[in-house]
C-alpha cells in the first residue's frame, strides 16, 4: 500500500471514530461558538469594533477549538494501547501523520464554516472577497492541522499532554493566526490584492509543516518506547 492509501486508511479511521463519538460536533463546535459569543459580549458596548476585529476573533476561536481537536486526535490512541497498535500496524509514520492531520483538517473546516456563519451573524460582518477567504481558510487549516499533529504526537504518551499541547502549539501557530487575520482583513476591506501575499506566507508555512510532519512523525511516534 502506498503512503496516500495508508493516509486515507488512517484518516478514515479517525473520522469514523469522530462520527460515532460526536465529540467534534457536540463539544468542539459548541466550544468555538461559545468563544465567539464571549468575545461578542466583551466587546458589545462598542458595536463598531466587532466587525473590524472579527477576523482576529475568528482565527482566535478557531485556534482555541483546534487545540481540542488535536488533543482529541491523540487521546483516541491512548485507550487499550491503540498507540502501540498503530506502531504494530506497520503503517508508515509519514502516512499516519498525513492521515491524522487530514482528519483534523476536515473537522476544522467544518468548525470554520459554522464559526464563519457565527461571525457574520454575531459581529454584523459583510462578506466580501469570498475567493480570498476560501483560499486563506483552506491553507491556514492545513498549516494548523499539520503543526498541531506534529506537536500532538510529541506530547502524546506524556502524562501532562492536555496542558502541554496548548503550550507547544500556540506559539508555533502564531504565524498562521497572523496570516489568516491579515488576509481576512484584506478580503473584508475589499482589497484582496493586499491579502494574497499573506496566503503565500500561509502556504509556505503549511508546506513546511507538512514536510516536517512526514519526516518527524514516525520517529516521534516511537519516542516513548
Amino acid at each position: 500500500m502506498n503512503m496516500f492509501r495508508e493516509a486515507l486508511l488512517v484518516a478514515g479511521k479517525d473520522l469514523r471514530i469522530e462520527a460515532r463519538s460526536r465529540v467534534a460536533l457536540q463539544q468542539i463546535v459548541p466550544f468555538g461558538g461559545i468563544v465567539l459569543i464571549v468575545f461578542a459580549f466583551a466587546l458589545d458596548p462598542d458595536r463598531g469594533l466587532l466587525p473590524r476585529v472579527a477576523p482576529g476573533l475568528f482565527w482566535t476561536a478557531v485556534l482555541l477549538a483546534s487545540l481540542l481537536s488535536i488533543t482529541r486526535s491523540f487521546s483516541i490512541e491512548e485507550a487499550n494501547g491503540a498507540r502501540d497498535g498503530l506502531r504494530l500496524s506497520g503503517l508508515d509514520g509519514g502516512a499516519i501523520f498525513l492521515g491524522k492531520a487530514a482528519a483534523v483538517a476536515l473537522q476544522l473546516l467544518l468548525l470554520e464554516v459554522v464559526l464563519g456563519f457565527g461571525v457574520v451573524v454575531l459581529y454584523d460582518v459583510s462578506v466580501r472577497g469570498v475567493v480570498l477567504i476560501a483560499c486563506t481558510t483552506v491553507v491556514a487549516t492545513v498549516a494548523l492541522a499539520a503543526t498541531g499533529t506534529v506537536y500532538g504526537v510529541l506530547a502524546a504518551g506524556l502524562r501532562a499532554r492536555e496542558t502541554l499541547v496548548p503550550l507547544l502549539v500556540l506559539p508555533a501557530v502564531t504565524p498562521v493566526v497572523l496570516g489568516g487575520t491579515r488576509a481576512f482583513e484584506a478580503a473584508l476591506a475589499g482589497a484582496p490584492s493586499d491579502g494574497w501575499p499573506w496566503v503565500q506566507l500561509l502556504a509556505a508555512f503549511a508546506v513546511l509543516a507538512v514536510v516536517a510532519g512526514v519526516l518527524a512523525f514516525g520517529p516521534l511516534l516511537e519516542e516513548d518506547s
Partner: peptide
C-alpha cells in the same frame, strides 16, 4: 498482549478491517 490495541468507538469488524488493511 495484555491490551487489545483497539478503538473503543469502532466495531469489531471496523477494528479488524483497519488492522488487516494496514498490512
Amino acid at each position: 498482549g495484555h491490551e487489545t490495541f483497539c478503538y473503543d468507538d469502532l466495531t469489531v469488524a471496523e477494528n479488524l478491517r483497519f488492522a488487516a488493511r494496514a498490512v
